[in-house]
Design a protein around this nucleic acid. Structure first.
Length: 481
DNA sequence: GTAGGGTTAG
C-alpha cells in the first residue's frame, strides 16, 4: 500500500503535533549534518533547541535520530547526557527496540559494561524489558571472553526486571558454553532448563551439545549423550554422526565407530563418503587391513563415488602392507576410474617407499610426479628429507631444508627436529645450530630429543677442545716458557 | 538451495 505523502495523520490526537515534529526533525537533520563537531558540542541543547523553535519538547524520533547519529559517528561518549535527558522525558515511553539496538551497538564497540548498565536501566525509561533485551545483552556478552564474567550478574538481576528466561535465552548461553569448550556446564544448564523451567528442548539443543562433545569430550561422554538423544527421540543427522565417528576413530574405538555406521543404516541414513573414509582410515591406522578391505568393498558395492581423499587413504593402507605394486598402479590408474590423483597421492606413495628404505623407487615416483605436471609441496620435501636422514646424509638433508625455507616452504616441527638431531649426532654442530636458529625464527618449538642431541654434541665438542688445548699447552710450554 | 565434515610427515 502506498503511504500518503501528507503528514496530516493523527498523531497523539493532534496533527499539529505531527507537523511541528516534522519541521523540528528537518531542522535537526540539517543542523546535525552541517555541524562541525568539536569537543564542546552540546548535543542535548542542539536537540532541545530544534524542537523548542516549534514549541515542543524533543520527540522520541528526535532522541532516536540523535542517538543513531552519535553511534554512526562513533561518538559513544556523548550518549550519556542524551540518555539522561530521555530518561527524564516522562511523556515518552521508550520502545524496547531502542535498547536492543543500543545494546547491540555497545557490543560492537566492546563497551560491555555500558551494555549491561543500559539493560539494567531500561525500566527507568518507562519500558518493561522482555527476553528480547535480555537476549541482546546475553548475545554480546557471550561473544567475548570478557563478557562471560558479566553474565552471572545479568542473570541474577533478570528476575527483578520481571524477565522470564525463554528457550532462546538458554540457547544463547548453551551455545556460548559449547563454543568455549565448557560442555559440562552446557549440559548442566540444559538439564536445569528441562527440569526447572520445563522446556522441551528441540533437536537444535541436542545437536549443539553433541557437536561440542565430539570436539571437546571423551568417547564415553559422547556415547552417553547419544543414548539420551535417542531416548529423547532426537536422531542426529549424517553430519553429526560423522563427527561422532571421527572422535571414536581418533581414540581408536573402531568397533564403536563401526556400530555407529550400522546404526545409521538402521535409521535409514545412508552413511556417506565421509563416514566411510573416516572408518577406512581408522582400520588402516590400527593395521586392521582385513576390515579396511571390507569397508572399501562396501563402498564400491554401494556405488559411492570415490574421491581423492578415499583413494589416498586406501593407498596409504596398501603402503603400510608393503603392497607397493598395487599402490603404485592405483596412483597411476585412479584417473581412469574418474578421480585425478593429487600431490598427496604421490606423497603417500613416496612416503611408503621411504619408510621401506626403497630410496630408488622414491626418486622414480618423484620424477613420475613431475613428468605428470605436479609440483611437489612442503610435505614432498619433508619426505625427501626424511629419506636423506635414513640414508645417513644429514648434510644433504640440511641443505634441502634450507632451500625449502628460502622458498618460503616451512617444514613442520618433526622435520626440523629430525634434521637438527641428525646433524648433532653426526657432529655437524654449527649446521645444527644454524637450523635451530631458523626454527626459532619461525616460532617452531624444538622438542626434548633435539635439546638432548644438541647438548651431547656440545659436550663432545668441549671435550675435543679441551684435549686440543691440553696438547697445545703441553707441546708449546717446552720451547717457549 | 549449498558447503562442510573425512587423509597427511611424530
Amino acid at each position: 500500500m502506498r503511504r500518503s505523502k501528507w503528514p496530516f495523520l493523527p498523531y497523539k490526537g493532534k496533527w499539529q503535533g505531527s507537523f511541528s515534529e516534522r519541521q523540528a526533525m528537518e531542522t535537526l537533520r540539517s543542523k546535525v549534518l552541517e555541524e562541525q563537531h568539536h569537543s564542546e558540542t552540546n548535543f542535548v541543547s542542539m536537540l532541545v533547541d530544534c524542537f523548542r523553535i516549534y514549541g515542543s519538547n524533543p520527540s522520541f524520533s528526535g532522541y532516536s535520530f540523535m542517538v543513531q547519529h552519535l553511534l554512526h559517528k562513533n561518538f559513544h561518549s556523548y550518549l550519556p547526557p542524551i540518555l539522561d535527558h530521555l530518561e527524564k522525558s516522562e511523556r515518552i515511553d521508550v520502545p524496547e527496540k531502542f535498547f536492543v539496538n543500543l545494546i547491540h551497538e555497545y557490543g560492537k564497540a566492546d563497551m560491555l559494561q555500558e551494555a549491561v548498565n543500559m539493560f539494567l536501566r531500561i525500566p527507568k525509561f518507562r519500558c518493561s524489558p522482555s527476553a528480547l533485551s535480555l537476549n541482546s545483552v546475553l548475545n554480546i556478552l557471550c561473544r567475548k571472553n570478557d563478557g562471560l564474567a558479566l553474565i552471572h550478574d545479568v542473570l541474577l538481576k533478570a528476575p527483578a526486571l520481571n524477565i522470564r528466561l525463554e528457550a532462546s535465552s538458554f540457547r544463547i548461553l548453551i551455545r556460548a558454553l559449547c563454543r568455549t569448550g565448557r560442555v559440562g556446564f552446557a549440559i548442566e544448564l540444559f538439564n536445569i532448563m528441562q527440569q526447572l523451567h520445563e522446556f522441551i528442548p528441540d533437536s537444535g539443543f541436542y545437536l549443539l551439545i553433541l557437536r561440542a562433545l565430539c570436539k571437546y569430550s571423551t568417547p564415553d561422554e559422547v556415547m552417553k549423550f547419544l543414548e539420551d538423544m535417542w531416548n529423547g527421540g532426537v536422531l542426529p543427522s549424517t553430519w553429526e554422526y560423522n563427527a561422532v565417528i571421527n572422535l571414536l576413530v581418533s581414540k581408536g574405538r573402531l568397533n564403536d565407530a563401526y556400530s555407529i555406521l550400522t546404526r545409521m543404516k538402521v535409521e535409514g541414513k545412508r552413511p556417506d563418503i565421509i563416514s566411510y573414509t573416516t572408518i577406512l582410515n581408522g582400520f588402516i591406522l590400527v593395521n586392521n587391513f582385513i576390515e579396511a578391505e571390507e569397508v572399501f568393498d562396501e563402498m564400491l558395492v554401494l556405488g559411492i563415488d570415490l574421491d581423492v581423499v578415499t583413494y589416498n587413504t586406501y593407498i596409504s593402507g596398501l603402503c603400510k602392507q608393503r603392497e607397493f605394486g598395487r599402490a603404485y598402479r592405483m596412483v597411476l590408474c585412479m584417473e581412469k576410474a574418474g578421480c585425478k590423483p593429487d600431490t598427496e597421492s604421490f606423497n603417500t606413495l613416496m612416503d611408503g617407499y621411504t619408510k621401506a628404505g626403497e630410496h630408488v623407487k622414491v626418486k622414480e615416483v618423484m620424477s613420475k610426479m613431475l613428468e605428470k605436471g605436479y609440483q611437489g609441496n612442503s610435505r614432498t620435501n619433508a619426505i625427501l628429507i626424511d629419506g636423506l636422514l635414513m640414508e645417513q646424509k644429514p648434510a644433504e638433508a640440511c641443505q634441502m631444508l634450507m632451500e625449502m625455507v628460502s622458498k618460503g616452504l616451512i617444514p613442520n616441527s618433526a622435520t626440523f627436529n629430525a634434521v637438527v638431531c641428525s646433524l648433532c649426532q653426526k657432529n655437524f654442530l654449527d649446521k645444527g645450530i644454524q637450523v635451530l636458529e631458523e626454527m626459532i625464527s619461525h616460532s617452531i618449538a624444538p622438542d626434548d630429543s633435539l635439546w638432548e642431541a644438541l647438548l651431547s654434541a656440545i659436550n663432545l665438542r668441549r671435550e675435543e677442545m679441551a684435549v686440543h688445548l691440553e696438547e697445545m699447552i703441553l707441546g708449546g710450554s717446552r720451547d717457549r716458557w
